[in-house]
Amino acid sequence: MPYGAPQSVGQPAEFVLHTACARWRDAVERIVRWGQRQGVFRDDVDPARVAMRLTALTDGMATQVLTGTRLVGDRDAGLLVDFVRHELVAEDGHTMTAR
């Protein structure tokens, strides 16, 4: 059941899906902003853009799993780790200075 579905009983499926996707992106954006404040993530990236790209990646991977065209494995986890390293972690591998 999608996040937020109990509040949407009786709503069209499109509304429920839209709400769940928006909440998922918002949650990722908040995590990126938190990581920036803590000095864990680079502060030169736009949290909204990172959230859109990361959720698109994970949603695409999930769709492949659900349709049976792909199985989850270490390689998939590696793709996500690579994305986070490339997009959010400082190039020298160290975290940014906390604000």
Rank of each mutant, 00 (worst) to 15 (best):
A20G: 04
A13F: 00
Q11A: 05
F41A: 11
G93V: 07
L54P: 01
W34Y: 13
D43Y: 09
A90C: 01
D43F: 05
A20L: 05
G93N: 04
G39Q: 07
A20R: 08
A98S: 00
L88Q: 08
V84W: 01
T95P: 00
A90S: 03
G68F: 07
Q64L: 14
E91A: 10
A27S: 08
L17W: 12
H86P: 05
R37Y: 13
L54I: 04
R37H: 14
V9L: 07
R25C: 00
E29A: 14
R30P: 09
F15C: 07
T67G: 06
R49A: 14
W34V: 09
V45I: 11
T63L: 12
R53W: 11
T95H: 03
R23M: 12
E29M: 09
A98H: 00
D59V: 12
D26I: 09
A27L: 11
G78Y: 03
D59T: 14
L80K: 05
F83W: 01
I31D: 05
L80W: 04
R42P: 10
D46E: 10
Q64N: 10
M61N: 10
L88M: 09
A22N: 02
T63Q: 10
V32Q: 01
D82K: 15
G35Q: 08
G60H: 09
Y3L: 11
T69P: 01
V45S: 08
V28Y: 02
F41H: 13
M52Y: 07
R42N: 09
M1G: 07
G68I: 08
G78M: 06
A51I: 09
R25W: 01
F83Y: 06
Q38M: 15
F41K: 08
G68Y: 03
A77S: 07
C21N: 15
G4E: 03
A98Q: 01
F41Y: 15
M1Q: 02
Y3V: 13
R49M: 07
D76K: 07
V89H: 11
R42V: 12
G35T: 13
G10C: 05
Q64S: 12
E91S: 06
A51M: 09
R99H: 10
D92I: 01
A56M: 14
V32C: 02
P12M: 06
V9I: 12
S8V: 02
L88G: 06
D26P: 01
L57M: 06
R99D: 06
G73Y: 05
F15M: 15
D92P: 00
A90G: 00
H18C: 01
F83R: 00
A98R: 03
T69H: 04
A77E: 13
Q7K: 10
V16S: 11
P6A: 08
T95A: 05
V32D: 00
D26Y: 10
Y3H: 06
L17P: 04
S8C: 06
V40M: 13
